[in-house]
Amino acid sequence: MDEKIKLSHGDGGSDTQRLIKNVFYKYFNDSIPNAMPDSFVFEVGQGKHAYTTDSFVVKPLFFRGGNIGKLAVCGTINDLVTAGAIPLFLSVGFVIEEGFSTEKLHIIAKSMRDVCKQTGAKIVTGDTKVVERGSADGIFINTSGIGLVSELYNSRRAVPGDEIIITGGIAEHGTSILIDRYELGIKTELESDCTPMCCLVNGLGENLKHVKQMKDPTRGGLATALNEIALEQGVDVELNEQSVPVKSEVHGISDILGIDPLYLACEGRMLIVVEKGCGEKVLHHIKALDYCDEAQIIGRFTSGHLGIVYMKTFIGGKSIIPMLEGQMLPRIC
């Protein structure tokens, strides 16, 4: 029988110990065979380090192509990647609602372990709290991570002419979540793109020198991420509609629901700003990396200094792409 999480699993007593032993040690013991300490001790060593944290409250907890656990690990790893860092150590904090299924907890922990194995990152410390029924929605997860920044990566300002690459099809995570959230009775092969993007730091080698900036287009999608970059840099961005990779299923679902894929989240894609003239060369190397075969140069920085994003459309027109306002909901009109 599927045991349910009780408040006593969070009170620090024997139930807590059992939960940690049976679930978390089972999956997270690669680095620390016997116990997960309250504090993990390590030497900082040479070089620059990146440190980040993120909390995950996704609904539904299980979606096509992943679950909240996979997302929590990928999200933090990808945040480290944006700094040009290889992930080393992660912490994980669970807030679990009373009555949550232990079986589900196993699935979540296992997929966190799988991503770690794949990337070499290690979960080295953690915490579990259980809250009364109704105080949380199933499970919330916080992760933080420390990574070692590649010496080849040197983040710097964008100038007109710099090129922008996206590493794959957009909106696949956001679209998957929408289908499951609204129980739309839609059948499709489409899955969330939820993936760790470490390959960009590991795999680009010397080409990382040409990269000026990286950003993962999560909440608010490509449009919002581009707007953030343009604003931050104070340089206009021109997006080329025709070259933005969008899977036909994503097109289909966003047409059906009346939602713009430019605003739907990616969880395994990276926006990469490459210095002028190096776009094609870097793109060639990116395409050879895992999960990046659909990569495209989608735009460039232009001479405008308003920090706005506009799109050259299929038909040859021009339209401004603002940030996301409000929630995306299925519409009829």
């Binding site: 050259k312 459309t313 038909i315 040859g316 027109g317 339209s319 009109c333």
Partner: peptide, 22 residues
Amino acid sequence: SKSGIRYLIPKEVMLLSGPGCP
């Protein structure tokens, strides 16, 4: 709006939106 058609037409031609959204 999204296709940027207004960018393609001269300023003398104005595209107006009537009451068509329920």
